[in-house]
């Protein structure tokens, strides 16, 4: 199958891309790696009349330390993040989670900005980013602003981005050798997660347990109170509203959320202990 017809715009700078968004409004879509957008367009579930290809804008792919944070360019591809030595040293959860996305070919194309902007509740990197904390840097006609990750993903394919804004960077705290865990549950290795849990420094985020990636707040609060991993993980499904599909109904997803949270927390504790 093939996408419906569209006009392709190839801006050379972020400013030009924003200008194109302003000009074309709702008819336009940003094209980054295309690995969420093009499959939707091929199935004709999306039919934008203008695509703004940001893949040719120089300088959007980087991972660097800036103070207490690591800054990651929106155009950084999953495989670049996976192999990046700075990321490996400063936020090791991210390269690992990047390696769990799809398959090698997908990782060669997909970008972190794309997966963040797409807001699929089943996506891996947003789950890890939400557990890390930090912010999404967006650029619009009025310049840049920073949106905390906890306020960014609003629902299924829905974010806090304005229609004329672009994701340009992700900023996450440096976690260094702190323990972390990421548990992705799939039927086949290259699948999207049925449920996933990310744990780092007492924060826990879940994939596919609601319209968007969510924090397991009851678990986090219990941990803060000093509850055991076992007790805290048992609360992981609280307040979630998972959907049912052929892989899992809501009850089973909630079970997985508890199980994967426990395992992710155990890994985080183990890794932390080992590193310490």
């Amino acid at each position: 199958m093939i996408p419906g017809p569209f006009e392709l715009v190839r801006p050379g700078t972020v400013e030009d891309a924003v200008a194109a968004l302003v000009e074309h409004g709702d008819d336009a879509k940003i094209l980054a790696g295309g690995h969420s957008l093009l499959p939707l367009m091929k199935l004709r579930l999306a039919m934008p009349s203008v695509l703004i290809d940001i893949g040719r804008i120089p300088g959007l792919s980087y991972v660097r330390v800036e103070g207490d944070e690591v800054a990651i360019g929106a155009g950084t591809r999953h495989h670049e993040l996976e192999k990046d030595p700075v990321a490996q040293a400063e936020v090791p959860i991210l390269p690992y989670v990047a390696s769990q996305v799809g398959d090698p070919q997908v990782r060669h194309r997909g970008t972190i900005g794309g997966t963040v902007a797409h807001s699929d509740p089943a996506s891996d990197l947003p789950t890890a980013l939400l557990a890390l904390g930090g912010s999404v840097v967006a650029q619009g006609p009025d310049g840049r602003r920073s949106i905390p990750v906890t306020e960014f993903w609003l629902g299924f394919f829905e974010t806090a981005l304005e229609p004329d804004e672009l994701v340009v960077e992700l900023r996450v705290p440096r976690t260094g050798s702190a323990g972390w865990g990421y548990e992705k549950f799939t039927r086949r290795a290259n699948d999207w997660p049925i449920v996933a849990a990310a744990a780092v420094e007492g924060r826990v985020a879940l994939a596919n347990m609601a319209g968007a990636v969510v924090r397991a707040t009851a678990t986090e609060e219990a941990l803060a109170r000093g509850a055991s991993i076992e007790e805290a993980a048992a609360l992981a499904a609280e307040g979630t509203s998972p959907s049912a599909d052929m892989h899992a109904d809501a009850e089973y997803r909630q079970h997985l959320a508890r199980l994967l949270t426990r395992r992710a927390l155990e890994k985080a504790a183990g890794a932390g202990a080992a590193a310490a």
Partner: peptide, 11 residues
């Protein structure tokens, strides 16, 4: 084939 779980090498 995104929905039909065709067996892959990893299983």
């Amino acid at each position: 084939l995104a929905d039909y779980p065709f067996v892959s090498a990893t299983e």
